[in-house]
Design a binder for these strands. Structure first.
Lengths: 162, 162
DNA sequence: AACATCGTTTTAAAAATTTCAAACGTTAAA
DNA sequence: TTTAACGTTTGAAATTTTTAAAACGATGTT
């Protein structure tokens, strides 16, 4: 016999740590874990209560999670007073993509600076120029593989549900 | 004519922001940018001076950067009193791998919990079980693509240097 | 052997982030 | 129209993280 209560707590704690190590708010991880676990959507008030938190931060976190497309609102036909939340079906893809977009965004730094550096024929600039070029090439290749990965995943996911 | 001083400052500032958005210390980004830019290796004292910081935090940051294999020590034949630092030639690969290892590590959560959940035949567990299975499959596929990417990159990198 | 220079560690202050409590606005039910 | 329940925003307190200063240890030079 497995202890359900313990399992839920462990999932919540571990997701909190994981999110924190990615530079995100620990509470974000807690909310995601709770919603991953919950068989039914939960309202903000319920989430706050289950996590022993006040509604303030939970409200802010839920907005961020919606911005990141990790969580979504659903409307309950029987109770349209409350907003209910559940994890996005594409939560893993989206989490990965968010991370990837961040990296891609940073690649622009290299691209832009490379252009500026290219204008200078200065000897001291050569090292930097080469490095920026390498950085740009690296992330371009990464992007290509990312696309391949997503395409393959969609196919695999369909098999999984069956 | 391009303003070298401005370019260096921009690179440093942008890398700081980028590192921060990944949950890392801003100063880490500054040091990495400075070393990416510098045509020659720099000592800890020089780095601290160039960034207008004290030696304490720079010392700690350099250790973390070495742990992450983003920066390495080099010994100068002419001055073996000081430790000199430069970026690792594989800095981009390693930065990516560190990020990936983090994700991989978190995948273990899913794998372990999946095993625990599988033991329970509880109806409420079914949703969670399916999600954990999906998470595991997602990251396993990701790992495969990561390997392919690195192999292809090594080949491309050689062409770049030529 | 004494001195000087460099990097590390520690401790305390400063800054940033997270958190809650309470006020506020909105919407639906009575 | 009033009331009640819910989510959001705001301001202040608490916590965490970052930072610098200074003490410390090690290593090479005189």
């Amino acid at each position: 016999m497995i202890n359900e209560e313990r399992l839920r707590k462990e999932l919540i704690q571990r997701f909190g740590d994981a999110y924190k190590s990615f530079g995100l708010n620990k509470l974000m991880g807690h909310v995601v874990a709770l919603l991953l676990y919950a068989p039914e959507p939960l309202s903000l008030t319920e989430i706050a209560a289950l996590l022993g938190r006040s509604k303030g931060p939970v409200s802010q976190i839920l907005r961020r999670l919606r911005d990141h497309k990790l969580v979504r609102k659903v409307w309950s036909p029987e109770d349209n007073r409350k907003d209910y939340y559940e994890v996005e079906p594409e939560i893993f893809e989206n989490a990965f993509r968010n991370n990837f977009d961040l990296i891609k965004n940073n690649t622009r730094i290299a691209t832009q600076l490379k252009a500026k550096v290219a204008a200078a024929k200065d000897k001291k600039m050569e090292t930097l120029h080469l490095r920026m070029k390498e950085m740009e090439a690296f992330y371009q290749l990464m992007e290509k593989h990312h696309r391949n990965f997503l395409a393959e995943w969609i196919a695999e996911k369909n098999n999984l549900v069956k």
